[in-house]
């Protein structure tokens, strides 16, 4: 194994890992605010992929411009999902919220499969290669990672520097107390679900510029989001970015030393161990 190759796979892993982190951010935000494990997360990521694909292939839109439109639609779609499927089961048993979100999963996948079938698609868009000495990375990957940090930064500013963001954190912390202080919790919950959905759509959109996909591809990223969420602390969106980088690094390094098929084994064993020992995550705060 050459040093250059190892370096390339590490950097590649980190770049993709950042996007994984973005996907997980949406999942963990929703968990943190309303204690719901969103099992529709994967299909939402897939919808992000297909939004970019459709806007790019049919209307010739620049993928990054398409991303902006998709993000907005994602926000609206997420709020809709909240009012239709989530609101009524909030506070009910975990089975209810799990199955409610899973029903959304089934609906999206059912319609998606009927329309798009399960053949592979890709967004045929290139930004060339970027080379630093022995290191070569794809332009789309570099941009995807860059945008991820931008989005994560915006999310941070939103949560910690805006009134609305403070409301979100207040509702996450203690919904009843937030309501007593006059925070419209229903709207805030809906908005949070919308933002969580938007993040999934954005992540899917960025992935579509890097890798081929089908309508079912989101599932794998949903599982990765679980692992990352647990790594970074469920309910801690920014921990997800760190978790994503860790996972990406793992995926970059492990194949150098053992067969590729061991990657998911290691990922899920780590996932289980963290949940057993420290369910609040490695970087999570104790509730």
């Amino acid at each position: 194994m050459q040093f250059g190759n190892l370096l390339t796979s590490i950097v590649d892993g980190l770049l993709i890992g950042a996007v994984y982190g973005l996907a997980a951010m949406g999942l963990t935000l929703i968990w943190g605010v309303m204690n719901v494990i969103n099992l529709a997360h994967g299909p939402l990521i897939a919808l992000g992929m297909f939004s970019i694909y459709l806007l790019f292939s049919n209307f010739g839109l620049n993928p990054y411009l398409a991303l902006l439109i998709a993000a907005f639609l994602g926000l609206i779609f997420g709020i809709l999902i909240y009012f239709i499927a989530i609101q009524r089961v909030l506070g009910a048993s975990h089975l209810s919220t799990l199955l409610a979100t899973y029903s959304v999963n089934m609906i999206i996948i059912g319609i998606g499969t009927a329309i798009f079938t399960t053949t592979f698609r890709n967004v045929d868009y290139s930004l060339g290669n970027i080379t630093f000495g022995p290191l070569t990375v794809l332009g789309t990957r570099a941009v995807a990672a860059l945008l991820t940090f931008l989005i994560a930064g915006s999310l941070y500013l939103f949560l910690y520097r805006t009134r609305l963001g403070k409301y979100v954190r207040a509702v996450a912390n203690n919904r009843a107390a937030a309501e007593l202080m006059g925070i419209p919790s229903t709207q805030i919950l809906a908005l949070s679900f919308g933002i969580g959905t938007m993040l999934a759509i954005l992540a899917g959109g960025l992935i579509s510029t890097m890798l081929p996909f089908t309508i079912l591809s989101g599932g794998a990223y949903e599982l990765k989001s679980f692992v990352i969420g647990v790594l970074g602390g469920l309910g801690n969106p920014l921990g997800s970015l760190v978790g994503g980088l860790v996972l990406g690094l793992l995926e970059g390094i492990v194949p150098v030393f053992m067969p590729n098929t061991w990657v998911p084994v290691i990922e899920f064993v780590i996932f289980i161990l963290i949940l057993i020992v420290r369910p609040t995550g490695l970087f999570g705060v104790k509730k």
Binding site: L99, M106, I107, I111, T113, A114
Partner: peptide, 12 residues
């Protein structure tokens, strides 16, 4: 073709 979606609506 949308068997899964119908089941999903039912589940919901």
């Amino acid at each position: 073709n949308i068997q899964l979606s119908v089941s999903g609506v039912l589940l919901l």
